[in-house]
């Protein structure tokens, strides 16, 4: 059976992609942030996962307000990035996957989740920045990516508890897939931040650290927050925690935190990184 070997959480903000394009990794501003990544890259290199399931949100590249899925899953052989309007360089195509993807889609619907199924979508920085971080120099072509998109931009949004349960359903689907594929799951975005309104610039580092702790020891505790709770405690875009909860739901075994880093502020956000083994 296919196996989920672990999960990785990471920020996905455009500023990271821009910093990498400009070679700013070792500048004082970015140093502590990028210093977190080599152990995760090393683990990926050692483990050689075949497939990466990436929980992300689309910030207005593919899924405009006209037709906006609450949950979506990609089942395409390839995904393209495109101009997002603010000067982040477009990255080479991402390799997709069409067998496990469809199996997950079938299993989700069988178990009462009804995502939008996408055979041709552009993927934005929410998905591409993590790939660039994990495999610098755009060396991610060997990994088959399954995008899983969660609406984090317009209310009503799926509840944290639902995102976690959605992840659990994906985890069970992977584990019932015949094959010996090694799968890694990414939860991207976050952590606390608020971009809009008079409250712009709000961060909550204490809460971010608490989320990273609870994500390992007691993820259910995080699912008891509502989205409005998260907005209040972690800022309007703090709801991106939902992608981390989706990832965590997929880890159905014994988890072990192998590495973490937390730096704030990175741009307007608290930037968390965790590497979690699923035994």
């Amino acid at each position: 059976m296919a196996r989920i070997i672990g999960g990785i959480t990471t920020s996905h903000i455009p500023a990271i992609g821009i910093a990498m394009d400009r070679g700013l990794e070792n500048t004082p501003y970015w140093k502590d942030f990028f210093a977190g990544y080599p152990p995760v890259r090393k683990w990926l290199h050692e483990q050689q996962p075949d497939i990466a399931i990436v929980f992300y949100n689309d910030h207005g590249l593919e899924m405009f307000l006209d037709k906006k899925p609450t949950f979506a899953i990609g089942c395409a052989p390839e995904y393209h990035n495109a101009d997002e309007g603010w000067g982040i360089a477009t990255i080479p195509p991402v390799t997709g996957e069409t067998e496990l993807s469809w199996h997950i889609a079938n299993e989700l619907i069988e178990h009462d989740f009804d995502p939008t199924i996408c055979q041709d979508i552009k993927v934005d920085h929410g998905l591409t920045v993590p790939l660039s971080l994990m495999w610098p120099g755009h060396n991610y072509g060997h990994v088959k990516v399954i995008p899983v998109c969660i609406n984090c931009e317009r209310h009503p949004m799926p509840k944290p508890s639902r995102c976690y349960a959605f992840g659990q359903a994906i985890g069970r689907a992977v584990e019932s897939f015949p094959g010996d594929q090694k799968v890694v799951v990414f939860g991207t975005g976050g952590l606390s931040h608020q971009l809009d309104g008079e409250r712009a610039g709000f961060l909550n580092a204490d809460f971010d650290i608490e989320c990273m702790d609870k994500l390992i020891t007691d993820p259910e505790a995080l699912t008891r927050y509502s989205n409005n709770d998260l907005i209040e405690i972690a800022g309007a875009q703090g709801v991106e925690l939902n992608m981390w909860l989706g990832m965590r739901g997929c880890l159905l075994g014994e988890v072990e935190e192998l590495h973490r880093n937390y730096v704030a502020p990175i741009s307007n956000t608290g930037a968390g990184l965790q590497l979690i083994a699923n035994h």
Binding site: T27, P28, Y29, W30, K31, D32, G201, F202, L203, N204, A205, D208, I209, N261, Y262, V263, A264, P265, N268, G270
Partner: peptide
């Protein structure tokens, strides 16, 4: 203001 809420940065 962002920096005043920060954490974990020894540089910049």
């Amino acid at each position: 203001y962002l920096d005043s809420q920060g954490r974990g940065k020894s540089n910049g």
